[in-house]
């Protein structure tokens, strides 16, 4: 497993493309992890007539990517980063950042991080807080559980075992995905890309099956989304760093003043490149509260409506 943490910001070739093949395996719809049975709200949208053809579907996918897709990408990147940072230091610097963004035991790191499961529960709780719909939380946990089951046999690692133990009912899918990505050799950018990709390919495939759409037309839609997928993965990784910028966006100013105690020092450490692993880890873990939380009210309604429909073909 790699220890360095790619942030995906580079415009040129990333330095270590070792995870590329693993990324393909992870994002492939043939990965036997139960994803084929989830439509991400598309089945209910089809039932209600809000998706009827390629044009509707394109708008659906674009909106889904900009909201749920971005959020899952950021959570997956954070999970990948956590997995990478803790792989060789199970009791590393990820302590319990509090909900206001205060880093754990700033400075010493003593007294926290003893239980390697704790940061996973904390990150999983961040996913909970970004998923208001109980139907979507359940769908996410089911997918996370199935993915972890599969990933632990394909890419066994202590990190995946820790995650399974930390959230026995099933970690949220992006958390499991990020951890699996790390175990497969991917960096956070690749984890984010996989999450963003899956967030639109599942619904697209479901629409093909449910509406009998021309699969080539639908793949063209996905191809059109490629730049947006890149943007989402980049934004997801940037958010891992942005959240500790003291004078960043509005919510990071006075509102999240708690997050800025030592944000300057940590941020400069990151921007100088190649920070000590521990310093970067602490800065980023403490920034989880500010990860994207883009919500899609219509997806919430669709997810809950789907759950109530007895004649459904997809799990979600």
């Amino acid at each position: 497993m790699r220890q360095d943490i790619g942030d995906g910001r580079g415009d040129g070739m990333r330095d270590k493309p070792t995870g590329d093949a693993a990324l393909l395996l992870l994002a492939d719809s043939r990965l036997p992890a139960g994803g084929h049975a989830h439509s991400g709200g598309a089945e209910e949208a089809v039932r209600l007539g809000t998706i009827t053809g390629p044009e509707d579907l394109a708008r659906f996918l674009r909106g889904r990517l900009a909201t749920a897709g971005l959020v899952t990408a950021a959570l997956a990147a954070a999970a990948c980063e956590l997995a990478t940072a803790t792989a060789d230091h199970p009791a590393g610097p990820y302590g319990q950042a509090d909900g206001d963004g205060n880093p754990p035991d700033a400075g010493t790191g003593a007294g926290t991080g003893a239980d390697p499961a704790h940061p996973w529960r904390r990150l999983d709780a961040e996913a909970d807080a970004r998923t208001a719909s109980p139907a979507q939380r359940e769908a996410s946990r089911v997918q996370g559980r199935l993915l972890l089951r599969t990933a632990r046999r394909i890419w066994p690692s202590t990190v995946l075992d820790t995650l399974a133990r930390a959230v026995p009912e099933g970690a949220h899918h992006p958390i499991a995905l990020g951890a699996a990505a790390a175990s497969a050799g991917c960096d956070p950018y690749q984890a984010a890309m996989a999450a963003a990709y899956i967030s639109v390919t599942g619904p697209a495939t479901a629409a093909v099956r449910l509406l009998g759409l021309d699969p080539v037309t639908v793949h063209r839609l996905l191809a059109d989304l490629a730049p947006a997928l890149n943007d989402a993965a980049h934004a997801a990784c940037a958010s891992l760093i942005d959240d500790v910028v003291p004078n960043g966006p509005a919510q990071n100013g006075a509102i999240q003043n708690g997050a800025t105690h030592d944000g300057i020092a940590q941020n400069s450490a990151i921007q100088n490149g190649a920070p000590a692993n521990g310093a970067a880890a602490k800065a980023r873990g403490s920034g989880w509260p500010a990860l994207p939380g883009h919500t899609a009210p219509a997806l919430d309604l669709l997810a809950e409506g789907h759950l109530n429909n007895p004649m459904k073909l997809f799990v979600s």
Binding site: F60, R62, L65, A66, A296, P297, A298
Partner: peptide
Amino acid sequence: AVDASPAVY
């Protein structure tokens, strides 16, 4: 990206 998306509003 989100205006008039059936997934968002």
